[in-house]
Design a binder for these strands. Structure first.
Lengths: 231, 231
DNA sequence: CGGTCACTTGAGCGTCCTCAACTGCGGTGG
DNA sequence: CCACCGCAGTTGAGGACGCTCAAGTGACCG
């Protein structure tokens, strides 16, 4: 029961070193600058795998544009998405030598990447870089802790409400959010089926809490009521 | 619907500086030694709170003996335990200035503790300490990622099987494990009710996969079948 | 314009939850 | 020393929430 078909073609844009720096004045940039590590750009097509579970962790990535999902699978194909990574987000950061989740591009995606070993070397001589690495991992941990509460204890409606508020915060532009992921992805993130996600969204639409301009273009009409039902 | 009654008395053993070093040749000891930070011992009674969610994170702890649960609550009292901390485990490590979960002693518990600020100061001048801090946080993150898969996608029986294997690995002595926590704690860790946990354990007992010498004293009779049902 | 795929909606079902009763063990006090 | 009490754990019956299976709709793309 594989939940995603992987595109057979792994066409990749030619790495462009010294690419113009995108407008992210973030930790990744800071680290890259501090450490003198050169960041390379790279692109992945929709549905393309970026790295697999248990593969050697050679690079650390930052999303420039597009969206990435990281997930774990059970032997029978049940999938749990741990996080969605949107422009600006760093992923693949792992002090272990192997990745613990699979990463795939949800849409056509461009990333910046640096060698993990370069980063660790930089951390070995620059405590600021080391601190940044720790902070970023801790930030992932905080998200995971919140998500465990959601997965273990929230109802379907509460989960979807939480999801909408998270996505609103992270990718809303002009009061509107354009979800890059399908209903199945949302379900696999929230520990639900795609049908349950769809029903919850329809219910919120019926209640006037949100409005669709298309299935993935959503406007939140009442964030307060959404926050209330988030428990 | 509070799931735990907190003992009103907060009797604490007088802090004993320069206490004899327990036999943990672990990261915590290494760090304490590297950084020259003095570790203090402290004891908590059964059910006593060690720190609360959103309290300032003043200390980092290591369990010497006993057991600790860390959890989050929803407004109506639903609880998600993120982890159980057993002798040797470090908890409360958080680069944020406040704790994100509540920590409580499950049984009478003794911990070593160091000031978080001392640790961070040490990390600022010693890259090995900084690396250790990162590694420990990453280890918590790995556990959380595995647990998200459990909470989002595993059946009740699979969750209990996973739990038993985890506890067997972490606290089995002479083929027997003595669980410090009650069925409700297990349920709140696995995203189940205490009744469902009890039924799953009874079923595994009926199938001869485990045996009870008392409700919390369990012998695993067939780890392979347990691992198989863990999915 | 036809086909495919994402999404929606409905009906029926199953797993786990809720509520309840009962059991057994451990601690305490008469 | 034993009876009693309280709490943890077990077990049962019934119900609800979310899943499964299925059909239908609509949008996008070739």
């Amino acid at each position: 029961m594989l939940t995603q078909t992987i595109s057979a073609t792994t066409t990749k844009v030619a790495p462009a070193c010294h690419a113009q720096t995108p407008p992210f004045a973030d930790q990744f940039s800071v680290i890259a600058r501090c450490s003198g590590v050169v960041a390379t750009e790279f692109s992945y097509k929709k549905e393309e795998e970026i790295y697999g579970e248990d593969e050697p962790a050679e690079y650390v990535y930052q999303v420039i544009r597009g969206a990435v999902r990281t997930y774990k699978l059970l032997s029978d194909g049940r999938r749990q998405i741990g996080a969605f990574h949107l422009p600006g987000d760093v992923f693949g950061l792992d002090p272990d030598s192997t990745h613990r989740l699979t990463a795939e591009a949800i849409t056509d995606t461009t990333v910046r990447l640096v060698k993990r070993r370069s980063l660790e070397a930089a951390a070995g001589s620059n405590v600021q870089v080391a601190h940044h690495l720790w902070t970023m991992t801790a930030s992932d941990l905080r998200h995971a802790e919140d998500h465990m509460l959601l997965l273990g204890r929230k109802t379907a409606l509460e989960r979807v409400a939480t999801f909408l508020l998270e996505m609103d915060r992270r990718l809303a532009k002009a009061g509107m959010m354009a979800l890059p992921m399908c209903r199945r992805d949302i379900g696999d993130y929230l520990g639900l089926t795609l049908e349950t996600v769809s029903r919850a969204l329809s219910q919120l639409n019926d209640q006037g809490i949100l409005a669709f301009s298309s299935a993935r273009q959503i406007v939140l009409r009442n964030r307060q009521r959404l926050a209330d039902m988030d428990a």
